[in-house]
Amino acid sequence: MSSVVPLGLPRRPGPDLKELVARVVRGDQDAFSALYDALAGPVFGLVRRVVRDAAQSEEVAQEVLVEIWRTAARYQPERGEVMSWVLTVAHRRAVDRVRSAQAAADRDRRAAESAYTAAYDEVAEQVEGRLEREQVRRCLKTLTELQRESLTLAYYRGYSYPEVAQVLGAPLGTVKTRMRDGLIRMRDCLGVGA
């Protein structure tokens, strides 16, 4: 059913919204009922375009109209029409609802992300670490004494090559060669790719 007025027929004037607001300020419930009837459609339409969800749009439109009832005294006729004032209030409320919904969704997403922890099997991790250490010990036993001592001083005690050479009383070149050979043997023993 169309609300278009055929050409040539005069439009029926709507209620005087400024007069209705003035009466609402004085607490006239009948005036608010008439104001509600005049504003509910445009308010809902605007809110629906912003919020998109029908149920939330109805809720926001209802909140706007209740706010108009409570704050009618704030309307200033010299600053604009009643419809502009009401639709400005409606738009602000609708945008607030969208922002609030987005913030809630963001909070939920962040909470879900922080609650998610990758599967972690502490016992398996400990067993794997123990097996790796045992394999390293076994491979260290296959090295010559000079290789084993050089690698132990450098990698487990943090000595530099010159310090290893000094502790072992061996020339620096010899220590470097033994360490290189020892690392190659360790790599092969541990099955690490070349």
Rank of each mutant, 00 (worst) to 15 (best):
E128S: 06
E122Y: 05
R52P: 04
R48C: 05
Q56K: 11
A55G: 07
R110G: 10
S84N: 07
T117C: 07
H91S: 11
E58I: 06
G129H: 13
T88L: 06
Q126Y: 09
A105N: 06
A40V: 13
T117M: 12
R110C: 11
Q56M: 12
E125N: 09
R49N: 14
R130V: 02
Y75I: 05
E132I: 01
A124W: 14
E113N: 02
P77H: 11
E132C: 02
S100K: 04
A72P: 02
A112M: 13
A94S: 06
A40R: 10
R52G: 05
A54Q: 14
R109P: 12
V51R: 00
S57F: 02
V95D: 04
V82P: 02
T117D: 15
A112S: 13
L39T: 02
R48A: 11
R92H: 04
G129V: 07
D108K: 08
A112F: 09
V89S: 08
S114R: 14
V43L: 02
V50F: 03
V127Q: 08
D96I: 01
I68E: 01
Q62K: 12
R130H: 10
A54V: 15
V47G: 02
V127F: 08
E113V: 15
L131N: 14
A115S: 15
P77R: 11
M83Q: 07
E78I: 04
R52D: 05
D121V: 09
A54L: 13
V98L: 04
G41E: 13
I68K: 02
R109T: 11
D108E: 15
Q135E: 15
A103P: 08
Q102M: 12
Y75S: 12
E67M: 09
R74C: 01
D106W: 10
L39N: 03
Q135W: 00
W69H: 14
S84K: 07
V43S: 03
R70I: 09
A115Y: 09
V123W: 08
R130L: 12
L87S: 00
G80E: 08
Y75R: 09
R110P: 08
L39F: 06
V136S: 00
A90C: 03
W69L: 15
E132W: 03
G129I: 05
Q76M: 11
Q76R: 14
Y120W: 15
R49T: 05
V127C: 04
R49Q: 14
V89C: 04
L46H: 09
